[in-house]
Amino acid sequence: MKDQIRNFIAEITFNDPDVIKDETKIFDEGIFDSMGLLGLINFLESEFNVVTEDTELQEENFGSVERIAAFVERKTVAA
């Protein structure tokens, strides 16, 4: 799952997947803007059937590949 997320982020930010580590802070890098975040929300829904609620739009859930994967896992288990 982490690789799927990493590859998606790499694709929409025109980066090499190798530079996006599990713990890389994707918002701090300045390459992940509003469009990237909206694209990621769409991706999680289409790929993992995970619908993001407004209240879940937190750095804790979206700040890195690691956090996004953990968020998807929590949502999947809860469902």
């Binding site: 992940f32 803007d33 509003s34 990237g36 975040l37 909206l38 929300i41 769409n42 739009l57």
Partner: peptide, 23 residues
Amino acid sequence: MPPVHFVSVIFQDGSEKRARLPM
């Protein structure tokens, strides 16, 4: 985090409804 935009509609009675905008 980057900002996320919502659309807000204000109805005739003054009530408001907001929804997050997909891309």
